[in-house]
Amino acid sequence: EAKQAFKELLKEKRVPSNASWEQAMKMIINDPRYSALAKLSEKKQAFNAY
């Protein structure tokens, strides 16, 4: 599932759970899995759940 892949990406890149969305994006934007969720709102939702 795309959300699961996105959460795994956050874990693998060691994005701190208290990081802001902007900080997290800088760490993950170059990974192909960043595109797993098409909409930015879906990415933010998955990030907030993380």
Rank of each mutant, 00 (worst) to 15 (best):
S17W: 13
K11Y: 10
K26T: 13
A46R: 01
R14E: 10
R14T: 04
S35C: 09
A24E: 05
P32Q: 12
W21E: 07
A5L: 13
K7H: 14
P16F: 00
R14C: 11
A19V: 11
P32A: 09
K3P: 05
A46H: 02
K39E: 13
Q4T: 14
I29G: 15
A24H: 00
L10S: 05
A5S: 11
A38Q: 12
M25L: 12
A46D: 04
K3L: 14
K13R: 10
E22R: 06
F6M: 01
S17H: 13
Q23F: 04
M27W: 03
E22S: 10
S35M: 14
A2T: 02
S17I: 13
F47V: 03
S35F: 13
F47N: 03
E22D: 14
E22V: 07
N18F: 06
K11G: 10
P16S: 06
I29W: 14
K26G: 14
R14L: 11
K11H: 14
M25K: 14
E12H: 08
S41R: 07
N18T: 14
E8F: 03
A36L: 13
D31W: 00
N30D: 13
K3W: 10
A24Q: 10
Q23S: 11
F6Y: 02
I28F: 01
M27F: 07
A2W: 03
K13N: 01
F6L: 03
F47K: 04
Y34P: 04
S35A: 14
V15N: 01
E8N: 05
K26H: 12
L9R: 00
Q4E: 14
N30Q: 13
A19H: 04
N18H: 11
Q23L: 08
D31G: 01
M27N: 08
F47A: 02
N48G: 07
M27Q: 12
S20R: 05
A46G: 03
A5F: 04
K11T: 13
D31E: 05
Q23C: 10
N30V: 04
I29E: 15
E42C: 03
E1S: 02
Q23R: 08
K7Y: 11
I29Q: 15
A5N: 13
K7Q: 14
Y34V: 02
I28C: 13
P16T: 04
D31C: 00
L9M: 14
M27V: 09
A38F: 00
I28V: 12
A19T: 07
E42K: 02
K43S: 04
A5Y: 04
Q23D: 11
N48I: 07
P16M: 03
A36W: 06
N18A: 07
I28N: 02
A24M: 04
K11N: 11
Q4M: 11
M25T: 11
E8T: 08
K26R: 13
I28R: 05
P32H: 07
D31K: 00
K3M: 15
A24P: 03
K43H: 04
K43N: 09
L10G: 03
R14W: 01
K11C: 09
Q45A: 12
P32G: 08
E12I: 00
Q45S: 13
Q45Y: 06
N48A: 10
F47H: 08
M27A: 12
K44S: 03
I28H: 12
Q23I: 08
P32I: 05
R14Y: 00
A46P: 06
A49E: 15
I28M: 02
A46M: 12
I28P: 10
K44C: 02
E12F: 00
Q45G: 09
A36S: 13
K44N: 12
Q4D: 00
L9C: 06
E42Y: 00
S17R: 15
P32D: 10
V15P: 05
I29F: 09
P32N: 06
K13A: 13
L40Q: 13
A19L: 05
K7V: 15
A46V: 15
W21M: 05
A38P: 15
R14N: 11
Y50M: 10
S35H: 13
E8D: 04
K43T: 07
S20N: 12
K13Y: 11
F6G: 04
F47C: 01
M25S: 13
S17K: 14
L9I: 01
A19M: 08
N18E: 10
W21A: 04
M25R: 15
N30P: 10
M25F: 04
D31Y: 00
V15Q: 04
A19W: 04
M25Y: 07
I28A: 05
E1A: 03
K39D: 14
W21Q: 09
N48Y: 11
E12A: 05
N48W: 04
A2D: 05
I28D: 08
K3I: 15
A2C: 01
M27P: 06
K39N: 04
A2M: 07
L37I: 07
W21C: 07
S41P: 08
K7P: 01
K39T: 15
K13G: 03
K26S: 13
K13C: 02
A49I: 12
E1W: 02
N48M: 11
L9K: 04
A2E: 14
E12R: 02
L10C: 06
W21T: 07
M27I: 08
I29R: 14
Q45M: 09
A38D: 15
